[in-house]
Design a protein around this nucleic acid. Sequence first.
DNA 1: CTATCATTTAGACAGATATCGAACCACCCC
DNA 2: GGGGTGGTTCGATATCTGTCTAAATGATAG
Lengths: 126, 126
Amino acid sequence: MTPTTLPLAPSKDVQAGPCCAPIAREPLTEDDAAELAALLKAVADPVRLRLLSMIGSHPGGEACVCDLTDVFDLTAPTISHHLKVLRTAGLIGSERRGTWVYYWIIPAQVARLGALFTPLTEPTHA
Amino acid sequence: MTPTTLPLAPSKDVQAGPCCAPIAREPLTEDDAAELAALLKAVADPVRLRLLSMIGSHPGGEACVCDLTDVFDLTAPTISHHLKVLRTAGLIGSERRGTWVYYWIIPAQVARLGALFTPLTEPTHA
DNA sequence: CTATCATTTAGACAGATATCGAACCACCCC
DNA sequence: GGGGTGGTTCGATATCTGTCTAAATGATAG
């Protein structure tokens, strides 16, 4: 067999200590995988990713739909559809206040995504 | 679906402290969003999520294809397809050693996903 | 050379997804 | 109340995606 020395050695020291993100620590069950995949699908779209970041970074932590629509070359129904996907996934909340509808990020759900892929030690830190 | 229920917490003080994951700190550019969405799409599938976790949690940090196929009710070409998607996204590497082909996780790319959604401070906490 | 493991290709098909236009609903203002 | 504006929902369509079968290819061990 003469293993040609393990090919790993990614020159990253990520696997020192506690080792690895949760996704790499133990096999996901079928159910967990299905649920997480649904959550990930909600963010696996350029428009929704931008919507999420625009909402999150908007002054006050929330954004009116009217702030969002103009940025995209998409019709209002399409934006509405994407917002609904994010809301259904539990990533954002919404409320109508008078004429306008406001959206905000639900940090716990976003953090859930992060935790999946983030090593227990320090993340990027640059 | 009318948003009849008010959000439990006032949406305005959701951000206390250093605030937020990168995704919520500033609006993503169109290009960044497209690139990240492509990466996310690679993991936004139950089978690929399980493959990733099975590879990552396998003893030695790598898994032979033969270890993976039996777990799923899928044909070999389909598994091969999913592995290719993960490899193309840069999330896993592969090498043939003798008869078998081995796969391993590329931690840096996985961590990139995590960093997107992970707050600089504490993660979800529950 | 033959058998095995894995990938690739091609074609096919069902289901999901992104998008649009039009209809609809909720609210404010006169 | 009536009218206008902001958003959502509905219905239709075109594309994308996951999966299969079947067959071909490549690489390796015996």
